[in-house]
């Protein structure tokens, strides 16, 4: 009895040892795969490699796309390399397909490609923006980013999966190389790096919901550092619906007529715009009604930070006459707020 017990104890401690130190990790033995691995496995057939026109050395002729319909629609980032008759798509099984170009969405900078589904073996696996957006893409959510970074995947090789976290959601001003990127809307920032080729790939939650479309690796003009951003998938919905489901889009708002505040700033000509200090206030203007005074420093319009006179002018173009904004300004050492009703430009 005692012998048996001691043998059992020995075995038990052996077992404990096996558990603690383990043996060499073996892929063959490991089953079942984890939930996250299953999710990535399920998503990979929806991610395609996109190859386009080359020419300029600094512009990659490769990227990534996402299958969004069984009829062969593929969404990708609209880039220089996407040219008529010169865009090819490589599916996960290695088959190459010539892609037709559908009209791009200039505001989002994305474009749909179309391949012939009858040429495809089996059925295309499509993803679609999730209907349930509850808790989707919030700060601190872990994500997996899929894309063909640096053209590492050829033929039937799978694209790369990188892991990260949603750093935040922001409408920061962005820059690509030397030029500003026009993108008006909130972006999902992640720390999963959008390396060259990862562009147009997808950002997914660990439970497999489609979070966004990877943008290029951009600079934030607010920090001068690189950020990896993705266009939220829900923002892509109107464009996808228009070209895949034939739902007409709502008319976009026209540019606002200029507004007038009666604030004259202490501005200077030239490249650098100084902070938005008030030089004088026009009598009987909206600003005079609010009680603004010379030397006040305007720091915010609603939630927009005003760091410079130029930003003050730029932000005001987002508003139309008659709208009321909350103006935050610094007077002496006090920070004050007031409602400013914007007027139309007075006739001269």
């Amino acid at each position: 009895m005692h012998q048996l017990l001691s043998v059992l104890c020995c075995l038990g401690s052996l077992a404990a040892q096996t558990r603690d130190y383990g043996k060499a990790y073996s892929f063959a033995e490991r089953k079942p795969v984890s939930k996250v691995e299953k999710v990535i496995d399920g998503l990979l057939p929806s991610i395609v490699k996109v190859h386009g026109a080359s020419g300029v050395r600094t512009i990659q002729a490769y990227g990534t796309g996402i299958i969004v319909s069984k009829q062969g629609h593929i969404l990708t980032l609209d880039q220089v390399m996407i040219q008529k008759d010169r865009t090819r798509v490589v599916l996960h099984d290695g088959s190459v397909h010539q892609a037709q170009l559908l009209p791009e969405d200039p505001a989002l900078g994305v474009r749909l490609l179309k391949i012939d589904p009858s040429e495809v073996d089996g059925e295309l696996r499509a993803v679609w923006p999730p209907a349930d957006t509850e808790g989707l893409g919030h700060t601190g959510q872990f994500v997996v980013s899929l894309g063909n970074c640096f053209r590492l995947a050829e033929f039937s090789e799978k694209v790369s999966a990188t892991f990260g976290v949603v750093v935040g959601r922001a409408d920061t001003a962005l820059r690509y190389r030397m030029s500003d990127v026009k993108y008006d809307g909130e972006l999902i920032l992640t720390d999963a790096c959008n390396n060259p080729g990862h562009y147009g790939g997808g950002l997914f939650t660990l439970d497999g919901r489609w979070l966004g479309l990877n943008m290029r690796l951009l600079d934030s003009t607010e920090t001068n550092t690189m950020v990896s951003a993705a266009i939220p998938s829900t923002d892509l919905l109107p464009y996808l619906d228009e070209y895949i489901n034939g739902k007409p889009r709502q008319e976009e708002a026209k540019a606002n007529p200029p507004v007038w505040t009666g604030i004259v700033l202490f501005d200077s000509a030239g490249q650098r715009s100084p902070p938005a200090y008030v030089e004088r206030i026009v009598k009987e203007s909206p600003a005079a009604k609010l009680g603004l005074r010379p030397d006040d420093l305007i720091v915010r319009i609603d939630d927009y930070s005003i760091r410079t006179c130029r930003e003050f002018r730029d932000i005001l173009t987002k508003y139309a006459p008659g709208q009321t904004v909350t103006l935050t300004y610094k007077r002496g050492t006090k920070v004050q707020q007031g409602a400013l009703t914007l007027a139309a430009e007075p006739a001269k």
Binding site: T139, G140, V165, V167, G168, R169, A170, D171, T172, L189, D191, S220, E222, T223, V227, D303
Partner: peptide, 11 residues
């Protein structure tokens, strides 16, 4: 820096 309502996070 980026976020309006909640802070950004890196881990």
């Amino acid at each position: 820096t980026f976020a309006n309502d909640e802070p950004t996070v890196h881990f």
